[in-house]
Amino acid sequence: MNKSTRLLTILLALAVALFFVAPMVGISSISPFISEQEPVLYKIFWHIRFPRVLVGFVGGAILAISGVVFQSIYRNDLASPYTLGVSGGAGVGAALAILLSLPWLYQPLFAFGGAMIPMAIIYIASTRMKRIDPAILILAGVAIQISSGGIVLFLHYVADRYQSAQMMQWVMGSLDVVSYRPGIILSVAALLLFFVVIGLHRELDLLSLGSDFAHSRGVAVSSLIHLLFIVVSFTVALLISFVGPIGFVGLIAPHIFRRFGGGRHIFLIPGAALLGGIMLVLSDTFARTLLQPEQIPVGVITALAGGPFFLWALLKKR
């Protein structure tokens, strides 16, 4: 068993364990073997905490896989699932739904629609390029992110205090789900994403060495980037519409796996996915319990832990 396979096995075992351990933790500690005879505790475990762990795990996996893909396309460790401005667009959509006082259901729909706008702009722009230039895509993403930020600030300005607080809450990201539905939808999306991306592991290996190198080895680079672009952005937009823009997991999980498990995508994709899932579930467990009974938005935890960690990892690399 090589280093990468060993690490994958450990991560898989950790992930399985976490699925049972994480829902045990909370104001009251509950065993996964809780009997249905205790309906309240049973419900808390299986209908509140477990769906939340599921969303956390699947969400972390989606962010990590998307991070792997964008980091390979851009050949840049700082690329994240949000590099193309998807989170900015989603933020505008969600803020608009809040400002218009639309029923709760509209918030994820508007966020999803908002996330699709930057994707459509960049997709159309890239189809007009003779050759896709990742640097231009990054800059386009930055421009969209800045513009979206401006629009969200304006919506904050015209919103009342309650709406403004809601917008703030959304921007921080949260795994506060109340049913299995988001977890199931996101699991299907995550599996589709996983199989598409793992099927392209060799192409991603080549792409991570540069588009000229990939082209000279027979990869149809532009078609590949377009396909990845659509699949990843669609999945990330779906995730954001449920949980908001949770930062750093998509940035850090691929980075850590690459360091300890190597850069071959056949290992990196499942490895980063498992690690991303574990990281987000752990972060959420902290978010739920650190100041209990209050809950901190999980995005705050991932940013607080992720920022310094990433800085450390980058400096250590030097």
Partner: peptide, 22 residues
């Protein structure tokens, strides 16, 4: 196609792509 071309021509670029983990 890209693949057919790559079966006929290979390329040694001026700057060799670096991989930290390969």
């Amino acid at each position: 196609t890209s693949q057919e071309l790559a079966r006929h021509i290979s390329y040694v670029p001026q700057d060799i792509p670096l991989s930290q983990s390969m």
